[in-house]
Structures are given as structure tokens and as C-alpha cells.
Write a protein that binds this DNA or RNA. Structure first.
Lengths: 194, 194
DNA sequence: TGTAGTTCTTAATCTAGTTCAATGGACAGG
DNA sequence: CCTGTCCATTGAACTAGATTAAGAACTACA
């Protein structure tokens, strides 16, 4: 149950067997069916979830009720609304399972406990957030500087597993374009390949 | 010299006088004239700079040579390319002073030393990066979901000091629009107010 | 003081991407 | 087996914002 998450943590720092035990004991195992809302706008996010198995999407709603996908998360990723989680403020995002999921969840209280008992995890979480920040900065740059087609090609190149697991209009909402336009891009691409 | 940065650090954790001394001793004071390049594409970023005084801009170049401003940083902010700084990889951004600056800089080696000697700073930097991540996520959402005019109004509302200190076409490149279009938005707004 | 560089504005034309509407396929529930 | 719902596709009309070009205002500094 904990092999994957422990291997994942090992990439950032060296933990002893005892430290892993403390860590694993604080994680809550959750099995969640697909199409479950883990967080809704207005909720205070009380988890950071590591995905052992499954697929999850986080998104915002704009003023016209359109969805903007912030993240697709699959095995070996974390999902949360860090702002809401850390400041205990109401979230303005939604988090939803797209498949049956097996999650390892950390509550704010247990995260504090973990950081007290094994301060080395401060480093682990700092590096995690840093990597996340790099990725979002890069995506922001691409959203501004690249055409929709280039963003789509980059997406399927970097996340080849995702298109097979999530509906196409969610990908459009991740790329910041309408589903119709994504469809046109795809048909144009498939024509130009023959 | 160190009052501001120490007050800034105090918001995240309680440090003793001795801990502040260690911290301050590791900071390198730099006075830099305006229009100085602190980092260029291809360089490895060797600083995290706290701005005591001045104004700095970081930006990317797209394939056509157009600038995309990632950040305007003024007093009490940090600038760096965290990806390059932490992974010691060549940067793909530029960092440039827009005014004469007084900076407090941390090199990778000195940051490591600081974290070893005062591990509490792990928490400080983690919270810093987290806040930064929240801000970039929000900006990404706005870039996708909002019109250029709404983004501009949000910008001048949240950063009223910036437009007075930086040329307008840099703001356009931050908002992800052409300078001409920003000019149109502004003239439209000023007309609609009379 | 002149001259060159830089910044901002305005207007005409163009285009990437949206919106709306219609169609057909896939599939889940009764 | 039918039927409703959800999704992807296609095409026509439209629009936010880009591009190009030109002129005006404002530095800066020799």
C-alpha cells in the first residue's frame, strides 16, 4: 500500500524505516468511486491526497459557469487546494474523481504532526511545491505565448496517458480553448498526417 | 539594512536574535544600477534576491523574440529562477532591473548552509513558495477565463504601484496582450468614465 | 540645441479562436 | 429493444485581439 509513496518520498530526502513508519501511520487510506466530488467551491480543503491509483481533475468555474481545468492528476501525483488547505480559507475550486481511486490523504493536523515529528519532511514538501510552481509557471508562459495547436501537441507529448483516460472536452478546458476548436485542431492534424 | 527582511521572515515563523544574525550574515548586499541584466537565458541562476529597494522584471522570450513578462518585483519581494537555482540547470528566462536596486542575495551554497544551521527556514521558504504558487495558479486561471480588459483592471487594482514605475508595454506583455491593444483598452476606459 | 531612441496612440486590415446550431455515434437505463 | 443523455464533429457567422504602419510626445545626451 505504501511502497509507491515511500519511493516517491525517497527521491527528495533519505528517510529511515522508523520515519517512514511515522509517515505511513499518519496517512489515511481512502477508496473513492469515480465521479465523486472531493472538494467544492466554498469548502475548506482538509486533505492533501497522494494518488495510489486512479485519475482526478481539479477545476475552476468562470463567471459564465464554464469549467477551467487546473490539473489532471494520476498515479504518483498529489492533489489539493494548497491555498485553502494551508490558510483554512474557503476554496474556489472543485476537485473530482474521474475514475475509481485509491488515495493516501493527509489532513492539516496530521501534516503538522508529521512536520513536528520528522522535520525532514519540511524539505520534502518544499521541493514538491517548488516543482509544482515550475510547472505552472511554464504552463502560464505557454498559454500566453503559444498557439492552441502547439499547446495541444505539447500536452499529448508530455502526458500521453491522459487523453486515453479523460474526455476530450476536459482537455480543451485545460488548454484554454473551446471543445469545438480542439476538435478542429485534431481533424486538421490527422488530415495533414496522410 | 536588514530590518525589512527580518520583519518579512517573522511573518512565517518566530526567529531568535541569534538566528537572525546567522541569516543576515549569509545575505550578500548588492547595489545594482538600473537596466542591469541579473540573469540571461542559458545562465545558471545563482541567487535568490530579496528587494530592499528598487524594481525588477523577469521575462521569457517566445520563438518570435517577443517578451512575456513573468513577474514585476518591488520592495519586499523575492526574485529568482527557482528551477535553475535549485536544479543548477540553464535558465530560460531573463531577469533585469528596471530601477537602481538594493538587493539581499542568497547563493545556493549559503542557502544550504542556512537551512542546515537554522532548519526553521525550511518552513519559511516552503510557505514563500506556496504563496507564490497560489498567485501563479490564480493568474493562469484569469489568463484563460477573463477578457484582457478585466485582467488589466484586476492588475491595476492589485498592484496600483506598478503602472507608475514601469513602461506600459511591459504591462501588456505581463497581461498577455499587444501594447496597441492595451492602449485601446485604456482609451476606452477613460472615455467611458466621462 | 539638435538628433536619435523610446514610448504611446490611432486607425485599417487580418486571423485565431468563439459561438451557435445541426448531426450522428456511443452507451446506460428501463 | 427503444430512448434519452452525453460527446465529438462540422460548418457558418462572428469577435477579441494581433499585426502593420504611421505619427506624436517624451526622454537623453553629445
Amino acid at each position: 500500500m505504501f511502497e509507491k509513496i515511500n519511493a516517491h518520498a525517497s527521491q527528495c530526502a533519505n528517510f529511515s524505516a522508523t520515519e517512514f513508519e511515522i509517515f505511513n501511520a499518519l496517512l489515511e487510506i481512502k477508496k473513492v468511486p469515480k465521479k465523486t466530488m472531493l472538494l467544492q467551491e466554498g469548502d475548506i480543503c482538509n486533505f492533501e491526497a497522494y494518488i495510489n491509483k486512479g485519475c482526478i481533475r481539479s477545476y475552476y468555474l468562470d463567471e459564465n459557469g464554464f469549467e477551467i481545468t487546473l490539473q489532471f492528476a494520476i498515479e504518483d501525483w498529489w492533489v489539493s487546494d494548497i491555498t485553502s488547505f494551508h490558510d483554512h480559507t474557503p476554496s474556489n475550486m472543485f476537485i473530482e474523481t474521474l475514475e475509481d481511486c485509491e488515495l493516501l490523504c493527509l489532513s492539516p493536523a496530521k501534516k503538522d504532526l508529521l512536520l513536528q515529528q520528522v522535520p525532514k519532511f519540511e524539505r520534502f514538501f518544499r521541493l514538491l511545491v517548488q516543482r509544482h510552481l515550475s510547472a505552472v509557471q511554464k504552463r502560464l508562459f505557454h498559454t500566453i505565448a503559444w498557439s492552441a495547436q502547439d499547446r495541444y501537441l505539447d500536452f499529448i507529448c508530455h502526458y500521453p496517458a491522459i487523453p486515453q483516460r479523460v474526455p476530450q472536452h476536459y482537455i480543451a478546458s485545460y488548454l484554454g480553448i473551446s471543445p469545438e476548436f480542439l476538435s478542429k485542431i485534431r481533424s486538421k492534424l490527422s488530415k495533414s498526417q496522410h
